[in-house]
Design a protein around this nucleic acid. Structure first.
Lengths: 251, 251
DNA sequence: GCGTATTGTGTACAACGTACAAGTAACAGC
DNA sequence: GCTGTTACTTGTACGTTGTACACAATACGC
């Protein structure tokens, strides 16, 4: 319970107690510096590089020192994520049609995950209840203004839209993580397995898979842009929401 | 390279070498038993309980023994997942309209993840190239027959549909994992934070968030069914694919 | 200078995947 | 039955993780 209070205070009051009359030894770091070191490390080497030991090392300090500034690792991750949310650009387009507004929201999230792929791999449940998330939530809900949706449906639609963007980003983060772990690209992974696979694979047993898999594989090999699944999916998502909003979305 | 061959052989030839004239000490286990122990453990206690030590313990054997049957842990996870795929029921409905066929495919995947939530948390890239995945892929592609989609689009549409179901299942798995880790439900988590949160939260600064969040929160507290986000999302996904398939999907 | 509050450090534990070397059981040929 | 070969089993060891706990260092109010 006091733990809850502690973390929420850290989120909302990044500067802590007012300066001046403080008793003991002077702190050598700040919460902000710890959070920034975590973000920088995650950006550079991925979330799995963010260990308490490694963050401490980046700050020239012994691991346990971090626990003076942050209750535990999960709180640090919360602070990192809310910080990203807080820094997202939030352009308002009240005069644009709803589809463009939703596409903009999706694009903002997409950009977040492109810049910080690790953010997509954090669980969406029990989010950081900080100023970043609140500003993001407020902003994104307003993109659904004048769509004729009741509040519960508005929230569900936003969750659906955001969830799609995060899922797409997770897939791409999975690919990158596997490439970093193994040192070989996805393309090399498939190329290495192709010959072995054909030895055990019966084309007549899986005719559709053979044909479609070959088409999809060569399309991917030829002019593959990694954002294709995202572009395709986003169009479907917006079409799906269009069927819900219908003509009620006047603008 | 030989490693690749080894894993693919394990996937496609579960019984290994033919019985009879074998030289050394008789194996006390089989690959199948190891895989089944892994699945049982993941079903019972979640994927994070599936350590080599723990699986070995379930089989009454020392951890390193498993490495005789399985190259490493990631191969074990591949075998576990392909086994699930292989056992999925695959009812064909060639005479049904396309929307029902896609809904059936989604439902089959949904049921997989309901029964084995840990399967949704495994990365979708670099999948297990075994008989289970191939049968699943073939079956699910055929649900798109007579939709008028070219092969590349058919694959993209299937990936989109399956990706949505997996993402929804991941969210629910995240919730369950958090509940198992902390010992308190999501509802309790929000209840505990509510009072603290209101101390720092400015309702006038986030009017839409306040109103919609309260509506969504009380709707969730009142008559919440956990599958709501899935049902809502699936309807949007199918509507989105409908806009793509249009009237070309004759049946 | 002294007590006290605060920050920084060192050590320790249990868990993880798995490399490596040694031990053990079962067969083939003699 | 004996021995050599092969395969399965085991014990030990390393480096990694988050963090509990006891203690050392520092700065302020008095």
């Amino acid at each position: 319970m006091a733990e809850v209070r502690r973390t929420i205070d850290l989120l909302w009051f990044p500067d802590g107690e007012p300066e001046g009359k403080r008793r003991g030894r002077r702190p050598g770091l700040t919460v902000a510096r710890v959070v920034e070191a975590g973000i920088a490390l995650a950006d550079a080497e991925g979330l799995e590089a963010v260990s308490m030991r490694r963050v401490a090392q980046e700050l020239g300090v012994v691991p346990m020192t971090l626990y003076t500034y942050v209750p535990d690792k999960s709180a640090l991750l919360d602070l990192m994520l809310d910080r990203l949310y807080l820094e997202m650009p939030r352009a308002e387009h009240p005069d644009r049609p709803w589809r463009e507004r939703l596409a903009a929201v999706a694009g903002e999230n997409r950009r977040l995950y492109t810049t910080h792929p690790w953010a997509a791999t954090l669980p969406a449940s029990r989010p950081p209840l900080g100023p970043g998330l609140m500003a993001k939530y407020e902003h994104e809900l307003r993109a659904f203004d004048d769509c004729g949706l009741d509040d519960v449906t508005r929230d569900a639609a936003l969750t659906f839209l955001i969830g799609f963007v995060q899922a797409a980003a997770r897939s791409e983060a999975d690919v990158r993580a596997a490439e970093a772990r193994t040192g070989s690209t996805d393309f090399e992974w498939w190329q290495e397995r192709g010959p072995v696979f054909e030895l055990v694979f019966d084309q007549h047993r899986y005719p559709t898979a053979t044909r479609v898999g070959a088409a999809a594989g060569s399309a991917m090999g030829a002019a593959y842009e990694p954002g294709h699944a995202y572009e395709f999916g986003l169009a479907r998502v917006l079409d799906g929401l269009a069927a819900l909003i219908g003509t009620a979305g006047s603008r």
